[in-house]
């Protein structure tokens, strides 16, 4: 009995504390801006350390493997399904005009310009972002990062720089791969229905893709990759104490990087349209 009374009191106390501590709008804005400033300094620190020898090539390659190779199954599946589904869904509206021969170029434009980079980035924000956030977060809360720091092992370079570089370069590769697999899926469907040959399909598909399309797509993919790496490393490296901190680091890195990916998508598409019609 005394035990349960005790825990009851404990609960009410902690509840009261939480309501007391609930931050007002002013605190939140302040947190937001100090957060942005911190992130800015984090990026500067990354840029400074990234160009400064020694370079951890071995670890970068290991991270490329972790981020790139290990995401292949998921990207293959989503790319393929996206290709097939998009083809299936577009066909009825083209059939009305007797224009099903436009399918290859339509799909190619959709995949390369928009779907592949975005789908890849969102998938990787979930998979890679949460992975990095949780991994670095748990290293932070168990003092492993401090241990590296005091043994002069340059944890920022070893843990953060390598991961950001790997994700910046792997997301574009994965996005191109995703576009290719999507087109393959689309081809299978088109081949089945319209009996288009492989060569005709891809000739039609690539005819419509300009240098600007590819360039924009790559710029997008690079910035998505950089965003995922920076956000996840920042959240993990600065995780709050306790196991809660790890979960929060993983979770917020996914949410924030997805949010930023959509904003970047909007901005880059806008800019590329200006260039297109200049």
């Amino acid at each position: 009995m005394p035990c349960s009374i005790h825990s009851f009191q404990f609960k009410t106390n902690s509840l009261k504390d939480e309501t007391l501590k609930k931050p007002g709008i002013k605190d939140r804005l302040e947190d937001l801006f100090t957060g942005i400033y911190d992130a800015y300094r984090f990026i500067l620190r990354f840029l400074k350390q990234a160009v400064r020898p020694p370079f951890d090539f071995q670890e970068i390659i290991r991270q490329c493997y972790e981020i790139g190779y290990k995401s292949l199954p998921l990207i293959t599946l989503t790319g393929f399904v996206t290709g097939i589904v998009f083809t299936k869904q577009s066909r009825p509206s083209l059939v009305v005009f007797g224009a099903t021969s436009w399918l290859p170029s339509l799909i190619a434009i959709a995949m390369v310009r928009a779907l592949a980079p975005l789908v890849t980035a969102l998938i990787c924000a979930g998979k890679v972002g949460s992975n990095i956030g949780a991994e670095l977060g748990s290293m932070k809360v168990t003092e492993q990062i401090d241990a590296m720091e005091v043994s002069a092992a340059r944890p920022f370079k070893f843990l953060v720089v390598t991961r950001i570089i790997a994700s910046t370069f792997m997301i574009p590769v994965l996005a191109m791969y995703c576009a290719f697999v999507g087109l393959l899926g689309s081809f299978l469907n088109v081949h089945q229905n319209e009996k288009t040959s492989f060569v005709t399909f891809f000739a039609d598909a690539f005819e419509q893709i300009s240098f600007l399309d590819l360039g924009t797509s790559l710029v997008k993919a690079f910035s998505f990759g950089f965003t995922i790496g920076v956000v996840a490393c920042y959240k993990g490296f600065n995780a709050a104490q306790g196991t809660q901190g790890v979960g929060k680091a993983a979770n917020t890195s996914v949410v924030i990087s997805m949010f930023l990916i959509f904003i970047e998508e909007l901005v880059i598409v806008q800019v590329s349209n200006w260039i297109r019609y200049f």
Partner: peptide, 28 residues
């Protein structure tokens, strides 16, 4: 020149004992 033994040991749990010990030496 400092050795810091953590309250929580803070071993790198993704590395084996050998790699844990090698790590400061290889990095420095």
């Amino acid at each position: 020149k400092l050795g810091f033994s953590f309250q929580s040991s803070a071993l790198y749990d993704s590395m084996s004992i050998r790699e844990n010990l090698e790590f400061p030496m290889i990095r420095n």
